[in-house]
Write a protein that binds this DNA or RNA. Sequence first.
DNA 1: CGTCATAGGGTACGCGCCGTACCTTAAAAA
DNA 2: TTTTTAAGGTACGGCGCGTACCCTATGACG
Lengths: 192, 192
Amino acid sequence: MRRRRGAALEDAILQAAADELTAAGYAGLTMEAVARRAGTNKNAVYRRWPGRAALGVAAYRRLTVAFTDIPDTGSLREDVLELLRRVNRQWSSPLGAVQRDLLAAAAHDPELLALIREGSADAGSALWLTVLERAVARGEAPPEALHPRVATTPIVLLRNEYVTRGEPTAPDEALIEIVDEIFLPLVRGRAG
Amino acid sequence: MRRRRGAALEDAILQAAADELTAAGYAGLTMEAVARRAGTNKNAVYRRWPGRAALGVAAYRRLTVAFTDIPDTGSLREDVLELLRRVNRQWSSPLGAVQRDLLAAAAHDPELLALIREGSADAGSALWLTVLERAVARGEAPPEALHPRVATTPIVLLRNEYVTRGEPTAPDEALIEIVDEIFLPLVRGRAG
DNA sequence: CGTCATAGGGTACGCGCCGTACCTTAAAAA
DNA sequence: TTTTTAAGGTACGGCGCGTACCCTATGACG
């Protein structure tokens, strides 16, 4: 019988872990289940990842596709709403639950934490700053508003919706409220 | 030998659980360890709490003292900063770590979630609204700013500091930035 | 083409903790 | 005192962890 090695095996294990994540969530991701599903044994898994959390993060990254295009509707409000809706969709999906569990599991491991965020919807402030920059260029927002903390406020508030309300999704009204009641007034308020 | 019953035993178990929490964190809180420390057995524990998470939350609540007094310095900025600093202190303490682990563990249990938040530093929006109300009364903030989402923005942003940066505490500069760069401009921006 | 280091496969183990079951025994209620 | 209630003691099966050991296919190298 053919015996897989190196990258091929690593790939098979990651795939198995990813399948396990989608099938049973992070709670169901056990080293033994992954090894079984990959048709191998725990040895091969432990040689590559030190534990559940690391494997989970690696598998999670295989499941996510970081979106790269930045909305450019010509309206700051619409751009931000669009971004929020994308993130909300992603966080509402089964993958969102996985991501939250993963975040909790890796809470004490900065390295893993960074890895999770990389493949995630709120990857840094660059995205949000770009949207804001365009608004400034259009004269829609004052230059003083160009601040990472300002730019990322919407996504931070959205995350809070998930944390505080235990629900798996945020209603669209909440997104609109975040933009209209907080973000836009905030941008305005920072006008010299 | 004297055998404890009812409330006395319940108290002993809770105390043991609380000790275990402070000694080893939520990770070290096991039903067996608690029973051992309380000088009893798992039966007595399971008769009262269905599992680790519930027991953990109950023990956590015994460890927290909800502060009730609301700062009233006469300045919105100072009031909010003071509240943020209190929360930051609490979240930075060993208890803060316990609380975060607990939140993660109870993520799928709305009942427990509510219990945790009750004894916690960010207990609802009432506190924050009061501070904002006083500022409005002083003419320091426009009445339009009187909105739960606005009032709680600082604490939401502070929570985000903990989530995104893996560090166990937020620097005072971050608090100041939240107030000066976000909260105060936001309140201003909502002026009709 | 044979040799050999490498890494996967198979298996078993000890550990810790979970949650449960069952019986005995003390304490409180009747 | 009798009866009911609840604690104590103990053991169990189950699961997943992480590790150790030895066997064997693979691919590189001489």
